[in-house]
Design a binder for these strands. Structure first.
Lengths: 197, 197
DNA sequence: CCTCTTCGCTACGCTACCGTAGCGTAGCGA
DNA sequence: TCGCTACGCTACGGTAGCGTAGCGAAGAGG
């Protein structure tokens, strides 16, 4: 018959399944953070999680499928406030981004995501949507500011996000320089001034 | 440790050695572009280059050493003109960077470099110096403009480079959006205006 | 209490790649 | 002509990881 646990409905599944699945995903996340997306091995995940290798294969057909779920589990969205003062709001958002780049788990996984997006056709859309979800709030906030006239009408939200976030990613991943609040401050004020010029 | 023939001294070496080394490096570059830095295997290089696996081991002690030379072989520096007009010079430089990001070999290898820099302690300094070599001309040009007063005295060249280049890298590697001349134009004019505000 | 699912475990066969050894050969330079 | 060097080739032994099979134990749920 139909398999009992398609993800569609909330057929409350066996607690054992839930537990082992959670342990596997968590371990797989850690593994990816440590060794990159190509360094993820089922056997490693098995050891880390304490879940038998066979059980992993009972839930995921192969390594790629597991990787997909790992990526999706990393996908968290970030809030951007709307106080009516776009400068302050973007400053807050960028400080949050910088903080995340310094400490958050997703930042550690970022190089793997980038690499995956470049090489792996199957994973590329996942990477793009992962990034997209994180970018959207800031872009929306900028678009709103354009509508209210707080920012000039010819500002392209998409490009503005790149000009604000890009330098932080650049320093964090390319040049490996610190992304301190002072740096954030300089970027925000410079870019906003430039957009209004 | 001691590499068989460091580039330093001009001990004119056997043409056969030169030829096989060149073929190996070239093939290894292609392999890294395709499979990432973790996907580089000696056997793959051997097949691609037509050079026997044993010969590769005669020149490099192991995979890591070869990888080091591959990275160094990618390291090309970019010219930044100095016409006296810093806006035009930076525009030119950024257009060149965008062109490289779209087509050049080093851009394809970039995700691997980033990943390597994040995970591999041995490769990290190499990655940093690779990036540094490419950044330097632009930073110098900006510093010169600050000295001549063409840019305000409080502009930090290092940060300015990040604000100019960062958005391009961001679009190319993070969001996978195009880096067209139009985008370059918008970034340059916005950032320069912001720096002068 | 009994059944049915899920799990852990061990043991496979298979592939890819590692790095090494040994042998025969081709060509350059004295 | 003769050596010396670098090369290609084949064949290893060893490791890591894949994905599968089969079995017995445990615990969730009726």
């Amino acid at each position: 018959m139909a398999l009992p646990d398609t993800e569609g409905a909330e057929t409350r599944l066996d607690p054992r399944v839930e537990r082992s699945r959670a342990a596997i995903i968590e371990a797989a996340q850690a593994a990816v953070l440590e060794n990159g997306y190509r360094g993820l091995t089922i056997e490693d995940v098995s050891v880390r999680s304490g879940v038998a290798k066979t059980t992993i294969y009972r839930h995921w057909p192969d390594r790629a499928a597991l990787l997909v779920d790992v990526f999706e589990s990393l996908s968290t969205s970030q809030m951007v406030p709307d106080t009516g003062d776009v400068d302050a709001d973007l400053r807050t958002a960028l400080l949050g981004l910088a903080e995340g780049l310094r400490n958050a788990a997703w930042a550690g996984a970022m190089p793997s995501l980038i690499e995956a997006g470049e090489r792996d056709d199957e994973l590329r859309p996942l990477v793009v949507s992962f990034v997209e979800r994180r970018r959207k709030p800031m872009r929306d906030r900028i678009a709103a500011a354009v509508r209210t006239g707080e920012l000039p009408f010819d500002v392209e939200p998409d490009l503005a996000v790149a000009m604000l976030s890009g330098p932080l990613f650049y320093r964090r991943f390319i040049t490996r320089q610190p992304v301190s609040p002072r740096v954030v401050e300089a970027i925000v004020s410079t870019v906003l001034a430039g957009l209004r010029a």
